[in-house]
Design a protein around this nucleic acid. Structure first.
Length: 422
DNA sequence: GGACCTTCGTCGCAACTT
DNA sequence: AGTAAAGTTGCGACGAAG
């Protein structure tokens, strides 16, 4: 049996931990560059603020309703997430951390929903008391059904106390008929539109389609989904694996038509990818660079990406930066105003089993240098040691007008308690 | 030797997720 | 002035090899 534990509007809940006056208030957290809304408190949802709402379009609504606004503070959220996952780990080793705010747990051997609901309740309590984040739990025989159960738990907090089990045929059918097709895990915008056109409006309708039809008109993914929805578990827990791609991509604060600016960004992105590679002890064999103009604007559009094969597997910031620049030079065109760029590394291999290349290899001093740089940056707590071509003042330039403090990860920003309150 | 078929790896892209 | 970032997977096209 699977449990899906999901933190309620996670980023907002993280902000609320350190600022209790935010409870019962409409709160939103914005994406990088303060671009759009990526987390909303229940009260904010009630105001009709959709997920992904562009900040500038909703600014007046926020003002009118006194919505509390935060720039995203990923260091804080990652730290809180780790604390939540540590608690989950105490309950079972069979756990899949699915995203920053949700995990699948598998309870083997017993299908006693009554007991597992009690455990789920305990987990919820411990996370709420220990970390300060509210969660919801969905219980079901398959992962896809656990997703739906979780959604039901979230939707009816008063009646269900944040826990719902799909533990009988009646409840399974009822749940499938309840959930709209576009809200089913794995059904995105495109598929939903096609299915709606076929008058498939909920998960139950979907399960009435024949296997052959689904396989022919859609794909193996949808066939697997049908089985999951019928209660046959085909999706298993996945282990924590090293990433197969690593990306660092950002929008710029303004449109940019200066090659040197874009180049500096690309070097920084490449160096950040290298850092992530070193963290998981991997090398990359391929590096891809992309640039694009602002697709929201009606100016002349240009977007390109290029993939370069590295002569040897590497995780050196210097090497990756060098090839990133090479790639950028191939695709950069004068006369366009660029809004976004990124570096993605792939073809990832284990750093310990580096293949010797007969013709070219990296300067062996890179390894030591990177180790030193990582060590220093770790000590400082943020990336301060950079390559010569990077902009040292760059951290200033992302728009983050509503940033909260790093309460848990930076010693200088610990929360202060006023002892004179009483 | 050439035509044909199959298999396999790679690449670009689309679609999906949070 | 302004609309996120990061990741996985599947699939079709294509070319090399057998």
């Amino acid at each position: 049996m699977y449990a899906l534990i999901d933190c309620n509007n996670f980023y907002v809940s993280c902000e609320r931990i350190f600022n209790p006056t935010l409870s019962n208030q409409a709160v939103v957290v914005l994406s990088n560059n303060d671009g759009c809304v990526i987390s909303r408190s229940e009260e904010a949802k009630q105001l009709g603020i959709p997920m992904g709402a562009p900040f500038f379009q909703y600014k007046s609504l926020f003002q009118k309703n006194n919505v509390k606004i935060f720039s995203s503070n990923y260091a804080l959220y990652a730290d809180i997430s780790e604390r939540v996952m540590n608690i989950l780990n105490k309950y079972t080793p069979d756990i899949e951390v699915y995203s920053i705010d949700e995990s699948f747990l598998k309870f083997n051997g017993y299908d006693d929903f009554f007991n597992i609901e009690k455990i789920a309740h305990q987990i919820k309590q411990e996370i709420l008391k220990g970390v300060g984040v509210p969660t919801c739990v969905g219980l079901a025989p398959t992962k896809a059904l656990a997703k739906i159960a979780n959604r039901i738990a979230k939707k009816f907090p008063k009646q269900l106390n944040g826990i719902y089990s799909i533990d009988s045929e009646e409840k399974r059918i009822k749940a499938l008929k309840w959930i709209a097709i576009e809200d089913v895990w794995g059904i995105g915008r495109r598929l939903a539109a096609r299915l709606r056109f076929l008058n498939i409006n909920n998960a139950y309708d979907f399960t009435q389609l024949s296997d052959q039809y689904i396989r022919k008109e859609f794909s193996v993914v949808e066939l697997r989904l049908k089985k999951e929805l019928l209660g046959e578990s085909v999706l298993k827990l996945e282990d924590i694996k090293n990433k197969k791609n690593i990306a660092t991509t950002r929008s710029f604060e303004h449109d940019e038509n200066d090659f040197e600016f874009v180049k500096e960004r690309v070097v920084t992105f490449a160096s950040s990818c290298a850092e992530k590679l070193r963290k998981q002890n991997s090398n990359a064999n391929l590096i891809s660079v992309f640039i694009q103009t602002n697709p929201q604007k009606e100016t002349l559009q240009y977007r390109r990406n290029v993939v370069l094969k590295l002569p040897f597997a590497s995780n050196s910031s210097i090497t990756l930066a060098k090839y990133a620049i090479k790639g950028l030079e191939q695709i950069y065109k004068e006369g366009f105003a660029y809004k976004r760029a990124g570096v993605i590394v792939s073809g990832i291999t284990d750093a310990n089993q580096k293949q010797l290349n007969l013709f070219s290899d990296e300067d062996s001093r890179h390894q030591e240098l990177m180790k030193t740089i990582d060590g220093l940056n770790r000590k400082i707590g943020e990336t301060k040691i950079k390559l010569g071509s990077q902009d040292l003042e760059r951290t200033w330039k992302m728009r983050q007008e509503h940033l909260s403090k790093n309460y848990t990860t930076n010693i200088n920003q610990l929360i202060e308690i006023d002892l004179n309150l009483a």
